[in-house]
Design a protein around this nucleic acid. Structure first.
Lengths: 218, 218
DNA sequence: CGTAAAAAGGGGAAAATTCCCGGTTATAAT
DNA sequence: ATTATAACCGGGAATTTTCCCCTTTTTACG
């Protein structure tokens, strides 16, 4: 029996290293490697012999793991997906599970656990890492809260600019909108994120993954 | 000829994967593996046959790459050190080079470049990745600017609290200081970090590694 | 001890942020 | 067409942030 594995990770060194490692597992064989979700999709389309399991990095440029998982789950429901991430951030876990991943693994797991996980997923269809699965019910509750939020694209664009040294006046100018409009976005974001200040808003936005720290030009 | 390699990275999966990869290089042999700088130090002390080259991750718990590099450079000057990091942040590069690393590599390099780098470092003592070495002079300039900063412990304590949803009044209360004192810290931090607003200060503080995102209670 | 330097604080004003009253315009659904 | 709904915006007031004048207290050091 040989399980065909696909891997997507933007860090080439990790991608190749992990590939070598997984290939060293007796029953595994890496058949697809990709640096981002878009490329992975493309390779899956062309492949005549698709992987059984995909290891998806969450943070990738061009197309991240969450978006990639959604598309793949829709197109190839027979492929099992495993999210791989550095941090066990609640929101990220929720998003990946909701996008169709059947497991969420942290990058600091031991290789043996990865092998065990891959085998269990292949045989039983799922695997729950102890480290992540501590309180699943809390996660579900949080997912529902998240649902009620739904930050709009405009709010997100504003939030991204608020993550800077600019004043609201300057941000309004950049977006070609009246100051009062910007203020409206701010107001609704305060409510949605449950904060009382711009700093709180920005930090909470980063923490929830609405914006990322490296895309805000300090 | 066999080059002995030591690796330190807090993500076990990456550590083990990279170890397998490096061992697959014809002239390399991984002799030490560690999950953090403290543990690495300990293993180096015990080892009778020390590595020629160390691959050091920058971000590690307990003791990070920067601190580890300083100690190791001091204790074992014959060991060459290579910084491994995800992002090519100016400040980080400066810190690692200043701590005694002879090269700075990004985690998204190709395995072949890593092999080439290891060989060059072993033979010639240094290696400059094109991706990082774009404008070395600018980095040196920045390093000198950095030098002039020296953020005090009090300022740092304030900055940590400023990284929250609290007002300055609330922060002053938490630190048992007058509002005006807090304002003094803010003022000097604005100058040192070259910003005009609290958001800018907080983000710049995070970017420069003065405070970390996970220690600020949003 | 004396003196310089640094830290802490007082007070006030300008600017930015936060909040709330409303109205207009665009969009979409019935 | 009309009605709901959301996006956009005007203006003013309270609060917070930012900035700059200064004095007092503490610390450091020859």
């Amino acid at each position: 029996m040989t399980v065909k594995i696909g891997i997507a990770d933007d860090h080439q060194l990790f991608l190749k290293s992990l590939s070598v490692l997984v290939n060293s597992f007796p029953n595994c064989n890496v058949t697809v490697e990709s640096l981002n979700g878009k490329d992975l999709q493309h390779k899956l389309e062309l492949a005549k012999d698709r992987p059984d399991i995909l290891l998806l990095d969450v943070n990738m440029p061009v197309m991240n793991g969450i978006e990639a998982a959604k598309v793949i789950a829709d197109k190839y429901p027979e492929i099992k997906m495993v999210a791989l991430s550095m941090k066990d951030d609640d929101t990220t876990i929720i998003n990946m599970i909701k996008s169709g991943c059947c497991a969420y693994l942290l990058k600091d797991i031991h290789p043996e656990e990865l092998e065990k996980a891959l085998m269990e997923i292949y045989n039983r269809g799922y695997y729950n890492a102890d480290a992540v699965n501590v309180n699943y019910r809390r996660l579900i509750k949080k997912a529902h809260e998240q649902e009620a939020l739904s930050i709009t694209e405009k709010e997100k664009a504003f939030l991204k600019l608020a993550c800077s040294d600019l004043t609201y006046k300057q941000i309004a100018a950049k977006l070609n909108l009246a100051e009062r409009t910007i203020d409206g976005y701010r107001e609704s974001l305060f409510i949605k994120l449950n904060v009382q200040s711009r700093v709180g808003m920005v930090l909470e936005g980063i923490r929830r993954g609405i914006i990322s720290l490296d895309e805000c030009e300090v």
